[in-house]
Design a protein around this nucleic acid. Structure first.
Lengths: 232, 232
DNA sequence: ACGCCCACGTTCCTATAGGATTTGTGCCAT
DNA sequence: ATGGCACAAATCCTATAGGAACGTGGGCGT
């Protein structure tokens, strides 16, 4: 596939070039996060290869990488499927896991916060406040993105590669649940206030308060979601 | 590759057949855990394919899956390498992460413990006590295996798929550190006593005690390792 | 009509081929 | 001796081909 304008050429420094499998990975990840690939849907290797106009080999590699995120599941000789919709139990487990990890991240992040990190966090909360919150997905996509970014930033500021990796695994699931949990954005005002409370504690430099506010936030998210979607 | 006696035939129910990539994955994982592949060593796709007598395709898929475990790292167009030796900072981060996750697992596992789980835990501690602890790797391999199994069982008994996944990511790193951390098994008696303390709390059905004992154990592991290997 | 069987298409899986890239080596000029 | 260049080998990456398994739909027999 002779690329007429290799990006390596214009930059001069390729630094970290990408291969096809990387592009495929990102495309699939985006489609999963977008909801373009619905839970339970088959993800055919050959089909995706045709869709993306590449050979099946890079698709296979990308899917192998995606499997660990829990967003697609593989059955030998049968192929990949998008992970099924969260059950009530799955959701409860996810929140339990968040409650074990995110407060720790918040405490550490508060202790180790950099100026850049704090700025980015403020920006994320600001984006949450200003993001449109319409009824269609396109309209609250940026809201979800800012929400995820806030938590991701805290995990990154905790400055621990293993905790960050652990959070990232959860993060993908959280995002997927936000999409398919059924409930729209009905709790934005409260959620924003809770995020603000975490941020305030960070600004004050009070790690314990930050952790406590994070516990509070996650517990309230759980409470609202469990109340909103009682059926299952 | 016409298998003259397909295992599917004798069992009647294949249930879950394996493909080459699965075998390659397990072989590589074993070699990594064994120390047969040393930190920093290159893991050539073509080379491994020759070694295992398969084509590069399944090797590529297995390595893609392995990358997320953190045991191998990939650089585009340059290939895979075994993750480098732990630095002191890496180790500190790993222990910090364990301290966030394992006590939670212990608390939950204690609440949700099954009879089978408790039996398996007792067995693991028993194996720890009886395992040979010679100087060569082969001689303390079963000791390491029992140690890892103990923690893995607790994570499994916590009955939370996300926490289990989070622990498993750490577990591989812990095992790798045990191999290449430099220190042999110099603290077996103390470590066994700490494991026993966790187990006792589980038997008593005291979740808080179990969590506390786990904190104690991990902190002491950290202390001993940091004291044993001051150079870096 | 209902059930069985076979042909067909789809998909997964593995091997192989070849282009692109990196790395190592030896030579040459400074 | 050191730095740069060219060439060669190893390696990665992608595409393609073909075998095997699975699912599907139509045709045939009862």
């Amino acid at each position: 596939m002779p690329d007429p304008s290799p990006s390596a050429a214009r930059a001069g420094f390729p630094v970290s070039r990408q291969v096809l499998a990387d592009h495929v990975y990102e495309a699939l990840l985006e489609w999963l996060m977008d909801g373009r690939l619905e839970p339970g849907a088959a993800v055919s290797i050959d089909g995706m290869a045709r869709e993306l106009d590449v050979s099946p080999t890079p698709v296979r590699e990308a899917l192998a990488r995606l499997e660990h995120t829990g967003m697609v599941r593989r059955v030998a000789l049968k192929g990949y499927r998008v992970a099924p919709v969260f059950t009530r139990e799955d959701f409860a487990e996810l929140m339990e896991a968040r409650l074990s990890i995110e407060p720790v991240n918040a405490r550490l992040a508060c202790s180790r916060m950099t100026d850049e990190g704090l700025g980015a966090l403020k920006q994320a909360v600001e984006d949450l406040k200003t993001a449109p919150r319409g009824g269609t997905f396109a309209e609250y996509r940026s809201y979800l993105e800012a929400d995820e970014r806030f938590h991701q930033l805290i995990a990154a500021q905790a400055n621990n590669q293993f905790l960050l990796a652990a959070y990232n695994t959860l993060g993908g699931q959280i995002q997927r649940f936000r999409l398919f949990g059924g409930v729209g954005i009905t709790d934005a005002e409260q959620a924003i206030a809770e995020h603000q409370a975490v941020l305030d504690a960070m600004i004050k430099g009070d790690p314990e308060k930050a952790a406590a506010m994070m516990v509070d936030h996650v517990e309230k998210v759980r409470g609202r979601a469990m109340a909103d979607a009682p059926a299952d």
